[in-house]
Simulated scan of single mutants.
Amino acid sequence: MEYYLILARSVTYAQRMQRALERVGIRCQIYRAPRDLTNLGCAYVLRVAVPDLTQALIAIHRASLDPVQIFLYQQGMYREVSM
């Protein structure tokens, strides 16, 4: 199973991102960021399906909520993706 994690700097930003994605019909879930991905203490991630990433980033950008980082989960490992 593959998916993207979009890192937000706080739970508030993650919730705002989630609402922006819901407005364009993209389903996502909010989780606390895995410890090995970031050193930010209160970071949260949105889990997004692989085919939805481009549209998700457009919606987030239009809402002025650019992500901190993006990671691809693939074959049991996280890999940072450049934006």
Rank of each mutant, 00 (worst) to 15 (best):
I70N: 10
G25W: 09
L53G: 01
I60S: 05
D66C: 13
P34G: 06
A33M: 09
R19V: 08
T12M: 11
L5R: 02
R27E: 14
A14S: 12
I70M: 12
Y78G: 07
V11W: 11
Q55C: 03
D36C: 03
L53Q: 01
C28R: 08
V45F: 02
R27F: 11
M77I: 13
L5Y: 11
C42R: 13
T54H: 07
Y4I: 03
A49P: 00
L7C: 09
H61C: 04
V48P: 02
T54L: 02
P51N: 01
Q75D: 15
R62D: 13
S10C: 05
Q75Y: 08
N39M: 13
A8Y: 04
R19Y: 13
V81N: 06
L40K: 09
G25R: 06
D36V: 10
L46T: 03
L7S: 01
Q55P: 00
R79M: 07
D66R: 15
G25F: 09
V45P: 07
D36A: 11
L5C: 00
A49K: 04
I30N: 03
V11P: 03
I58D: 10
Q69P: 05
Y31Q: 11
I60L: 07
L53M: 02
Q55E: 12
G76R: 06
L72H: 15
S10M: 08
V50Q: 00
L53V: 00
R79G: 06
A59K: 03
G41Y: 08
Q15S: 14
L53A: 00
Y78L: 09
L65R: 10
I60N: 05
Q18D: 13
I58H: 07
L21W: 10
V81E: 09
T12A: 14
I30H: 03
I30L: 10
R32V: 12
R23I: 00
V81S: 00
L21I: 09
S64D: 14
A20G: 04
C28Q: 04
V48M: 06
G41W: 04
T54I: 04
V45W: 07
A8C: 12
G76I: 05
Q15T: 14
P67Q: 11
I70G: 09
V45N: 06
V24S: 03
L53C: 01
E80S: 13
F71R: 05
C28T: 15
L53P: 03
Y78V: 09
D66H: 08
E2P: 02
V24D: 05
V24N: 05
R79N: 05
Y3P: 01
L37K: 04
V50K: 04
A8F: 04
I6E: 02
I30S: 06
L46A: 02
N39R: 15
R35N: 08
Q15H: 12
Q29T: 15
A43T: 03
A49L: 06
C28W: 01
A59D: 10
H61M: 00
H61G: 12
A63G: 11
D36Q: 14
S64T: 10
